[in-house]
Design a protein around this nucleic acid. Structure first.
Length: 139
DNA sequence: ACTTTGGCTTTAC
DNA sequence: TGTAAAGCCAAAG
């Protein structure tokens, strides 16, 4: 797939992230079938224009450690992201060094690869397993 | 064409 | 958890 398809797949998957759920860049890469493209997922979201037709909930994508990427001191992207997450009810805590983090055990959404539609032909036909992908139910 | 730079990950300590 | 180091891949410089 070329970069256009990659972007499309990323957006597609990100849009599949349920309300009040978050996932990681790396997991999205896995879902698409390219485990080592985690950084490119970040770029795809970075290149995303802010007024695409079906909005892409990019705020539901954070690092695998459950922290919101700061994107540098001069930017307020992390703050925006935090507000967006809290706005939909996701609990965001502030670390001791001031970073925002989300409890992945509670809000994380990590369905097995192949169980979500990525909008491309590589989705296996009768994908077994969870179609819900309700991550961890530790309550 | 080479070097840096990212909304990253994993493994190891 | 928190760093540190080594991979990773495309876009900028």
């Amino acid at each position: 797939m070329d970069s256009a398809e990659f972007h499309a797949a990323v957006y597609h998957v990100v849009r599949r992230i349920p309300y009040q759920r978050v996932t990681s860049y790396g997991h999205i890469a896995k879902l698409i079938g390219m485990p080592n493209y985690s950084r490119l997922v970040g770029q795809a979201l970075k290149f995303l224009s802010r007024d695409v037709e079906p909005p892409v909930p990019w705020q539901r994508v954070i690092s695998s450690a459950g922290t919101i990427s700061s994107r540098g001191p001069g930017t307020n992207g992390a703050q925006i992201q935090r507000e967006a997450l809290e706005a939909e009810g996701v609990e965001v805590v502030v670390g001791r060094t001031g970073e925002f983090r989300v409890d992945l055990a509670r809000w994380g959404w990590f369905p097995a690869p192949g169980t979500v539609d990525i909008g491309l032909s590589l989705t296996p036909a009768g994908a077994p397993g969870t179609t819900d992908g309700a991550g961890v139910d530790v309550t």
